[in-house]
């Protein structure tokens, strides 16, 4: 078991190196630092001095891979690759284009992200599982057919409309909660209600439909017939036998996204003005702040791999059949 986890962690290293190389290629080789400087400074008629000054200010004035000017180890370390890419491995994200410490910003902004993402996940999970069980209990009746149509319709609606609709109904039409904004500490709750409701409703279509098909797949299995042959009631079969088995893919599906909750939701946060990592990323994209985008790419990859490892571990916990080697 521990050997298995160790091996998975070791396997993560080449993947992170790969991610790092891809980002390096994208951000520094496809377009040179000059190109970036020119774009930031406003396209045409930019003096070479201005470009040099911008590069020096943001630390892009080094050579890409090898520094002839420096000596010894510094000829490798005093380069863009080392300063901007390799240091990510130590979670040293450097500073953004407007001079703020990215690492500090991330540590501040992940909490509001979590404050939305965790309740959305939990409430959504509880609701979707209950609803799916309800549908499956009444399978092949009009409740089932109607619900499936409703679910397909719900998942055919873009998430943007859920947000716009939610804001319009609850905030604008009925003035129940503020449209957007955020507050420190416990006062944040009234700003969180709407995004959480919207997030949950937006996920019902795909979530419930998936769980329904998982339940139906389990119900067709032989052990369910055995359970019925014992004389168990349908409710008992559903809750004790089917639910337990279907929970395995459900839970492991949840575990894989757990670490990524830190990253927040791009759209929701920027719509509701929540100062989380999602809106941080969006702002960085629209301000073309590559330092932040680069950091978030790396952070996202780390969290994704963490999710994969956690998933493997969670399998051994919830599924008695899996013993890792």
């Amino acid at each position: 078991m521990s050997a298995y986890i160790l091996r998975r962690i070791l396997y993560a290293i080449p993947i992170l190196i790969g991610v790092n190389l891809i980002t390096f290629l994208l951000f520094f080789v496809v377009n040179s630092p000059e190109d970036m400087a020119r774009m930031h400074l406003g396209q045409k008629r930019v003096t070479t001095e201005a470009i040099q000054a911008w590069k020096a200010e943001h630390g892009y004035d080094r050579p890409l891979l090898y520094n002839d000017a420096a000596s010894g180890l510094a000829s490798l370390t005093d380069t863009i690759f080392f300063q901007k890419s390799v240091k990510l491995f130590a979670f040293q994200f450097g500073s953004s284009d407007d001079g703020r410490d990215i690492g500090y910003d991330i540590s501040q902004r992940m909490w509001p992200s979590l404050a939305i993402a965790v309740p959305v996940l939990m409430v959504g999970l509880a609701f979707n599982i209950s609803y799916a069980l309800f549908i499956v209990f009444f399978r092949a009746t009009y409740i089932d057919i109607g619900s499936v149509v409703l679910l397909v319709a719900m998942l055919s609606i873009s998430s943007l409309f859920y947000i716009i609709g939610g804001q319009f109904l609850l905030s604008k039409a009925f003035h129940l909660v503020p449209i957007s904004g955020y507050d420190q500490g416990l006062n944040a709750w009234k700003f969180l209600i709407l995004p959480v409701i919207v997030g949950v409703i937006g996920g019902i279509g795909s979530g419930t439909r998936w769980y329904r098909s998982l339940f139906l797949e389990e119900i067709a299995k032989d052990y369910v017939r055995t359970a019925r042959a014992k004389g168990l009631s349908e409710r008992f079969v559903l809750f004790r036998h089917v639910l337990r088995n279907a929970l395995i893919p459900i839970l492991t599906g949840v575990v894989v996204v757990l670490p990524l909750l830190f990253m927040g939701s791009l759209i929701t946060e920027s719509f509701f003005g929540i100062p989380g990592l999602g809106s941080y990323t969006i702002d960085a994209i629209s301000n073309q702040d590559f330092a932040i985008v680069r950091s978030m790419v790396f952070l996202g990859a780390v969290l994704y791999i963490l999710g994969l490892i956690l998933t493997d571990i969670s399998y051994t916990v919830v599924d008695p059949r899996v013993r890792l080697q």
Partner: peptide
């Protein structure tokens, strides 16, 4: 290895990075 690596970069961010780079290229 190839697809795990590509998969581990959050999709939106990868798209953002590429499109931003494309914008830089196009504006230049």
């Amino acid at each position: 290895y190839l697809y795990t690596t590509l998969n581990s970069i959050p999709g939106v961010l990868l798209i953002a990075a590429v499109i931003l780079m494309l914008q830089v290229y196009m504006s230049n």
